[in-house]
Nucleic acid binder design. Structure first.
Length: 732
DNA sequence: ATGGACAATGTTTTT
DNA sequence: CATTGTCCAT
């Protein structure tokens, strides 16, 4: 009782109830901003300190590694040290650990590598070629997606459901795909779950061992678990039945990845004795923001009604802004941020700019760069996706696991060492006939350069292969003696990698910088070793790269925004085709998910929310007229501040088709044609002021016969000037 | 084997 | 438009 107090202090009654609930299954349905992370961390603290559960018997599953780290530090904050031994991580990371430990029962070695998305699709592509299939008809990413879906439903190749001819193709590719993965001693993301489920099913003793070991299991973002994960959970709780899941079906946005929010409903059915707790009070957003969020999500049919209320004040109205095109959208983002910062109503780090697709970040980045404002970007051309980074990792992976054929293919001729397609194909066929992996064949060649039976290769190509083989042997001999960092340095030096990528251009030194960044990461794995380093590299996610220290705006996709909050949020690209994305038009399920995605974005905002839509958008190079997002039609007029844009560039009149009236009204009485004064300044222009120096025009409008220009000066920041007085010179 | 020039082709979201 | 793949000349 008293011991409960300290873990429930400062929590509302529902939160308290959740923290001390149990024993047995508990389902917490938590609306956005309702403090679910707090509940989870307090619950863990409570289990350890009040109930005396040993940390090692607790398993907590989060959606990202970052969420795991954050949770750990918050628990430590609550109860001090004493959290050591707790299993805390993503499903994938947790499964990887289990599989390495139990590999003796499974058809791969415990030093298996984990293929990333590129590797996976690359492998599928190779199989499609090998099987002599039409690459146009059967595109690798699509086939791979089908395989991935099957795996998430725990369907092995021979269980793959056949309904169409394409299914037969997929099945053949799937079969071959699994064979090649195993031949490479590799697993893909989905395999981590699949093989763990397989392990638990085939080896009841192993399953029981883990089920007995984990006395308490906690799961965050439960609405985004897939079938495989659900099955794993059922295995793991089979002994103690102490499962505590937290989720919100309204925030389910990973259906395309196999996530199924029906798991929430399934949970209540599978665990009839479960306790259900609703967290409805919102502590994050103003009422104004929450009102808009509710109008969006209430259009969502078949949902369990949930009443959200906030403890916060009404707040400022949500602002809806229409701009001419996506270029101007970016300018509006900058203007808004600069303006609010200049007026000291916000810090740069308070802002987040959210969009549907990664491609949309480009224009925004350019605008930030032009304005010379720093920002941070989550995801996109992710660090680990960079060519030079992937190359170096491929070397390490190959040395670590010579069977990794994908990595070998990747770097066998990078940098150029005279091993072309012909030679690598010859190597592959020769490896096949002698029933070893190409990597091991190379190692043999390197160890035994004068071995007989080398007729399969020309003298010159053979020399190149042997040279490379000798390097591989050297590195392999060193790998157990050196730290990951030292091994990496050795490889970099032996290949003279720097002179290969750093060609003196800016881009070249950027690329070398990336390699140096990877070095820094490797340095953190002195103790943990190469396996851990490679696993980390494979399993970190985009959002894990988000560092909260810098006071600058954040650019991120709506997906990446889940679980985060920001004082001021700008959601851009609110146009049909972008949000909702055009790929969701013909599938009502997907359309609902787009709606939830929008809802997630809205509910990230604490104080202020800006919604931005454009009249024109270039999707394929050419700008095209686009409709405002259909979701905007669902928001009542009085919930929104209609900040009609002061026009700066000529705005072609659109013919609204199935387009809501509130926009048309805004479009029709734009001020530009009324004014006698001809506008001279447009966003993006470089201008010079006699005393303030150079700057960029952020915005300009006609006001009372004069042109009012907002300029971001390099030296002074944002200034608003009247064109008739300021003697501005246009530079570009 | 390599590198350049051209054509085609395609864009969600990510552990 | 921007990336990726194919073809061709060195």
């Amino acid at each position: 009782m008293t011991s409960h107090m300290e873990f429930t202090a400062g929590l509302n009654p529902q939160q308290q109830q959740a923290v001390i609930a149990g024993p047995g299954p508990v389902l917490v349905l938590a609306g956005p901003g309702s403090g679910k992370t707090r509940v989870l961390t307090h619950r863990i603290a409570y289990l350890i300190s009040a109930l005396g559960v040993r940390p090692r018997h607790i398993l907590a599953v989060t959606f990202t590694n970052k969420a795991a780290r954050e949770m750990e530090s918050r628990v430590v904050h609550l109860i001090g040290q004493g959290t050591q031994g707790i299993t805390l991580g993503t499903f994938h990371a947790t499964c990887a650990r289990i599989l390495r430990r139990e590999a003796k029962n499974l058809p791969f070695e415990s030093n298996f590598v984990i293929f990333d998305a590129d590797d996976q699709v690359g492998l599928v592509k190779r199989i499609i070629r090998d099987l002599d299939l039409d690459e146009k008809r059967y595109r690798a990413p699509g086939i791979h997606a089908s395989i991935s879906n099957a795996k998430n439903d725990l369907l092995l190749p021979d269980e793959f459901p056949i309904n169409t001819f394409r299914d037969e193709i997929v099945q053949r590719v799937y079969l071959s795909y699994q064979k090649l993965l195993l031949a490479s001693n590799a697993l893909d993301f989905d395999d981590l779950l699949l093989w763990t489920a397989f392990l638990f099913e085939e080896f009841p003793k192993v399953r029981t061992k883990y089920a007995r070991f984990y006395e308490h299991i906690l799961v965050d973002e439960f609405q985004d678990t897939n079938f495989a994960q659900y099955v794993l959970l059922k295995h793991l709780v089979a002994f103690h039945h102490n499962i505590f899941v937290v989720g919100d079906t309204d925030q389910s946005i990973y259906r395309w990845r196999g996530a199924d929010y029906h798991n929430v409903l399934r949970f209540e059915k599978d665990f009839p004795d479960s306790q259900v707790i609703l967290l409805e009070q919102n502590y994050r957003s103003t009422q104004a923001i929450l009102d808009v969020a509710m109008t969006i999500i209430n259009r969502h049919p078949y949902r369990t009604p949930k009443l959200l209320f906030t403890s916060r004040e009404q707040g400022q109205k949500v602002v809806l802004h229409e701009v001419y095109d996506d270029r101007e959208e970016a300018v509006f983002v900058i203007t808004t941020i600069v303006d609010l910062v200049a007026r000291r109503s916000a810090k740069p780090g308070d802002f987040a700019v959210m969009y549907r697709t990664n491609a949309q970040s480009r224009l925004l980045e350019e605008a930030f760069l032009r304005a010379e404002l720093p920002y941070k970007l989550v995801g996109a051309q992710r660090f680990y996706g960079r060519r030079e980074v992937k190359d170096v990792i491929a070397y390490l992976r190959l040395v670590h696991n010579p069977d990794d054929e994908i990595s070998l293919i990747r770097i066998i001729n990078v940098p150029r060492r005279g091993i072309g397609d012909k030679s690598s194909i010859a190597l592959r066929t020769q490896a096949q006939t002698s029933a070893v992996s190409p990597g091991n064949l190379l190692l043999d060649l390197g160890r035994n350069p004068s071995a007989p039976n080398q007729e399969w290769i020309s003298r010159r190509a053979g020399a190149a292969l042997r040279n490379f083989g000798e390097l591989l042997v050297k590195w392999s001999d060193q790998k157990s003696k050196l730290t990951p960092l030292a091994l990496m340095d050795l490889i970099l030096e032996d290949m003279d990698y720097r002179s290969y990528i750093d060609d003196g251009t800016d881009e070249g030194s950027d690329r070398w910088e990336n390699v140096m960044e990877l070095r820094r990461l490797a340095a953190e794995f002195h103790k943990k070793g190469l396996t851990a380093f490679l696993e980390q590299v494979a399993l970190v996610s985009d959002q894990d790269t988000l560092t909260g220290t810098m006071n600058v705006p954040t650019l991120l996709t709506l997906h990446a925004a889940k679980g985060l909050e920001f004082p001021i949020v700008l959601i851009v690209g609110l146009n049909d085709g972008t949000l909702p994305h055009s790929r969701s038009f013909d599938d009502p399920e997907e359309m609902m998910e787009e709606r939830r995605l929008f809802y997630v974005g809205i509910t990230r905002a604490m104080d202020r929310l800006y919604l931005v839509c454009a009249q024109n958008r270039s999707l394929y190079g050419y700008p095209e007229p686009v409709d405002a997002s259909r979701f905007l039609d669902d928001i009542p007029h009085d919930l929104i501040e209609d900040a009609r844009f002061s026009r700066s560039s000529p705005r072609p009149r659109r013919t609204p088709l199935h387009h809501s009236t509130k926009w048309s009204a805004a479009v029709d009485n734009t001020p530009d044609t009324k004014s006698a004064y001809q506008q001279k300044f447009h966003p993006g222009m470089q201008v010079q002021h006699p005393t303030w120096g150079d700057g960029m025009v952020l915005n300009s409008r006609i006001d009372d016969g004069d042109e009012v220009v907002d300029i971001f000066f390099k030296e002074l920041g944002l200034k608003r000037v009247a064109a008739s007085l300021a003697h501005l010179e246009i530079l570009s």
